[in-house]
Write a protein that binds this DNA or RNA. Sequence first.
DNA 1: GTTAGATAGTTAGGTGAGCTAATAGTTAGC
DNA 2: GCTAACTATTAGCTCACCTAACTATCTAAC
Lengths: 161, 161
Amino acid sequence: MAATLITPDQCADSIMTVVPAVTRFLRASIRSHGKPHLSLSQLRVLYFLQRRSQSSLSAVADYLDVTRPTMSAMVDRLVQRGLVHRSPDPSERRRIILSLTPEGTATMERVYRATQQTVADRLEALSAAQLNQISAGLALLSTLFEEPHVSALGQAHGDTE
Amino acid sequence: MAATLITPDQCADSIMTVVPAVTRFLRASIRSHGKPHLSLSQLRVLYFLQRRSQSSLSAVADYLDVTRPTMSAMVDRLVQRGLVHRSPDPSERRRIILSLTPEGTATMERVYRATQQTVADRLEALSAAQLNQISAGLALLSTLFEEPHVSALGQAHGDTE
DNA sequence: GTTAGATAGTTAGGTGAGCTAATAGTTAGC
DNA sequence: GCTAACTATTAGCTCACCTAACTATCTAAC
């Protein structure tokens, strides 16, 4: 409708404005739903671990694009809360294997679904065409800005094809 | 075309995946361009102050959707770096007036433009139609997830020259 | 006018995400 | 066997967030 000609600069401008706003919304949603408060980053770690269980710390760090020390500290907190389990890898003894505890799985699913629902509630107001418009835009952004190896997360929402 | 039927849940899923990825990209871009390193949040504060100069601390906090103590600490850092100036409001003596210093304006514009350019570079690969698709999606997200008062930032991308 | 309530900003104290640099242990290459 | 590369951790830092509590100021009500 208002789709006049857009320059990359203007589009970049929009990205820089909208993305932080949505980030704040996501953070607030997660906070309001988690009884043991999860951060957005923690949720992403748990979400990743659910589908790539037995990952090494480095693998998770690479996927989420943070340094290993950062991930090490994050895992510390998650282990301390009983959501993640660290175990040694027998074949590679410098590596650790990360996996979700049952509680970690439950917490992750609960918070993820609740957050997803909060976001979906906002989207309810839209028409199917508008939903598709958002979805198409996000898909493009995904190809442009996601780290290549992160695409597994991006693909993961499409098992209903 | 590839726009099959999308459920709100799937769309929410995409949002939760893509938005953090783009956030990371923005953060990395800003970091790489600022000589005095600015954070994404700091850039947003400076960006806002440029077009709403003489704002009070609360006004900025409300716009960026953070608490006053958080904004107070952020302003502390920006003042310490000589980018922002705190002055008393003569008519309301409990209020402070925030404004960019010349250096603050210069730093903001440099970092903002460089970041915008980095983002725009990625967007160059797209067709006009794809650009419009992203733009349209972002516009919708903006109406859904931005705080009402923040819309001024969203409108603001067309005033250079 | 004084007193009660709201409002603006700060301070104190905490959690968590992020970084770099340096370290210990492990594996692999030569 | 020695070195080089890799995995994870520790230490030390900055910054973005939060809540609770405090000061100062303004407003309104009595």
